[in-house]
């Protein structure tokens, strides 16, 4: 059943303008970050790591949360338009399959975005002529970033299913990302999905997490994914469908 709705979701997304936005935002983050790095070359002396501080700051704190919100809003906008909720909700698939397939599509998109960002980072470093070897930690940052992105996707999907507007959930994500910065500074980052992204991606601190911290990181993200999905699926099951 999940495969059926996943296949259907994939068909909806395949030919869509969303992919150009998915490509554009990481590119913008890299451009701004690289320009910043280049302008402050005298103080940023740690090669690849210094470049990461610049590019991941814009990416993890602003562009990625916005991108996740756009993806999720788009996934729901498809259904809010042209009474498609009626079609979706009368298809012979369970409501959980509907939500989980959307979350899975968001996850696949995030995977592609992360991979693309990493590729761009590599290219930027090469263009700048960084001599030191490519830092292998980036793969860990990207994987953790991906997992945190899925937790945020669950939240954003739930919001976008509830809110018909395209822009409002995106606005909420921007606010949430800034609040996340505050939570991170107050050392409460582990308990808030948008700060988990900051931690996971190594945007503000490139020190590696301890095993315990890694465990907590995984557990908290999993917890958010499960709880928010359960709430969203319950909402889909209980409410009257308005399309």
């Amino acid at each position: 059943m999940l495969i059926k709705s996943l296949a259907a979701e994939w068909l909806k997304m395949r030919k869509s303008y969303i992919w150009s936005i998915l490509a554009a935002l990481p590119a913008v983050s890299i451009l701004i970050g690289t320009a910043n790095y280049y302008a402050n070359k005298s103080v940023l002396t740690n090669g690849w790591y210094s470049l990461w501080t610049q590019v991941s700051l814009f990416y993890g704190e602003f562009f990625l949360p916005v991108l996740i919100a756009i993806c999720c809003a788009y996934l729901c906008r498809l259904e809010h338009f042209n009474k498609n909720w009626y079609q979706v909700m009368t298809a012979p698939v369970s409501r959980s399959a509907i939500f989980i397939s959307k979350l899975a599509i968001a996850g696949i998109m995030m995977l592609i975005v992360q991979a693309f960002f990493l590729l761009l980072y590599f290219c930027a470093g090469k263009v700048l002529g960084l001599a030191s070897p490519f830092p292998i930690e980036t793969v860990g940052w990207m994987s953790r970033g991906l997992y945190a992105s899925i937790a945020i996707s669950a939240v954003q999907l739930a919001l976008s299913i509830r809110i018909r507007s395209f822009a409002v959930p995106i606005g909420i994500s921007i606010c949430a990302a800034f609040i996340g910065l505050g939570m991170y500074v107050m050392k409460l980052g582990m308990f808030y999905p948008y700060s988990l992204l900051t931690i996971g991606i190594g945007a503000l601190s490139q020190e590696s997490l301890t095993i315990a911290e890694n465990g907590l990181f995984l557990a908290m993200n999993s917890l958010f994914i499960v709880i928010v999905s359960a709430i969203a699926i319950r909402y889909l099951s209980k409410r009257d469908v308005v399309a």
């Binding site: 709705s5 259907a8 909806k12 030919k15 042209n82 498609n84 009626y86 079609q87």
Partner: peptide, 23 residues
């Protein structure tokens, strides 16, 4: 129900394919 549901950015056939997958 009410007016027809469809995904405007897809062709008629692609819309049918989505229903085909679901059913």
């Amino acid at each position: 129900i009410e007016s027809p549901s469809y995904y405007g950015h897809l062709t008629g056939l692609e819309n049918m394919r989505i229903m085909q997958r679901l059913h």
